[in-house]
Amino acid sequence: MRSYGESLSHAPTFPATAIPLAQLLAEPDLLTTQLRAAADNFGVHDLRPAASAWSNRYLAALLPPLVAAATLLHHRFPAGEMAVSLAPHGEVAGFHIRELGESLPGTNAVQRYDTLLRGHLTPFFAELNRQSGLAQKIMWGNTVRWLTFLFDAMQSFGEPHAGAANSDRAQLLDHAQWRGEANPLHMRRKRASPKPGEQAAADGLVTLHSQCCLYHLLPGQDYCGACPLDPVRMQ
């Protein structure tokens, strides 16, 4: 998992080419340029699937180091005060912080993840929705996939890390409310009969993604293996 940490760097000043999150949200043309570059790179005119794929790669760079710090070390990075470096074709090259944040021993997941979820992802997803028309529930669904992947990976780390991952997973994903508001990470788990050759759980069913990520709308792509909209599975 070490390579995931390379997407986050710390220095007293942001690199000259990095764009602060606040600027990315305040100047819509910056995000529009990235989305159109991503759409051109994917070879699609519809910004929705391009935005979904782009946001998924954004999350791939953002979440692993912040989740590892929050769950395994009880440390909160300043997720709302970051800058992002973008590659020429629109991809996310990495994130930058000027301060190391704070250690929060003995705190719950709500306290450790609030800055990431409400200070970074909530306004970012809202702006991405305005720019591309991509439903925010799809972006939150992509977030749930990454959190699930990371928490599952932590199971191999042994105790107390596996227990910490299970506790944070439950606090983040299993409750309909988040500090008095609707929790966008709380999604109904979809279960279905397996397709031919697919291994099912003990109850004879397989777990599907809560949301379709629109990956099948990209040229040359198809429905992913756990897509709830796969026509073959729906039949």
Rank of each mutant, 00 (worst) to 15 (best):
S7E: 01
S9R: 15
H10T: 05
A11P: 03
P12D: 06
T13G: 13
A16T: 12
A16N: 09
T17F: 07
A18V: 02
I19M: 09
L21R: 14
L21Y: 10
A22E: 13
L24K: 09
A26T: 04
A26Q: 13
A26G: 14
E27I: 04
T32Y: 12
A39R: 00
F42L: 10
H45M: 13
A51V: 04
A53M: 07
A68G: 11
T71P: 05
L73N: 09
H75Y: 06
F77G: 03
A87G: 10
P88T: 13
H89A: 15
H89T: 15
H89E: 15
E91H: 15
G94Y: 02
H96M: 04
R98W: 04
G101Y: 08
G106M: 05
T107C: 14
R112A: 01
L116F: 05
R118M: 12
L121T: 07
T122P: 07
P123V: 07
E127V: 13
S132L: 05
G133P: 05
A135F: 03
N142S: 12
N142G: 05
V144C: 11
R145M: 15
F149I: 13
L150H: 00
L150W: 00
F151A: 03
Q155V: 03
F157M: 15
H161C: 11
N166L: 05
D168R: 15
R169M: 05
A170N: 12
A170Q: 11
Q171S: 10
H175I: 09
Q177E: 14
Q177F: 02
G180A: 11
M187N: 08
R191E: 10
K195M: 13
K195N: 06
P196L: 07
G197I: 01
G197W: 00
G197R: 07
E198M: 03
E198F: 01
E198A: 02
A200Y: 01
A202R: 11
A202N: 06
T207Q: 08
T207W: 09
C212V: 03
L214E: 00
L218Q: 00
Q221V: 02
Q221C: 07
D222H: 10
L229V: 05
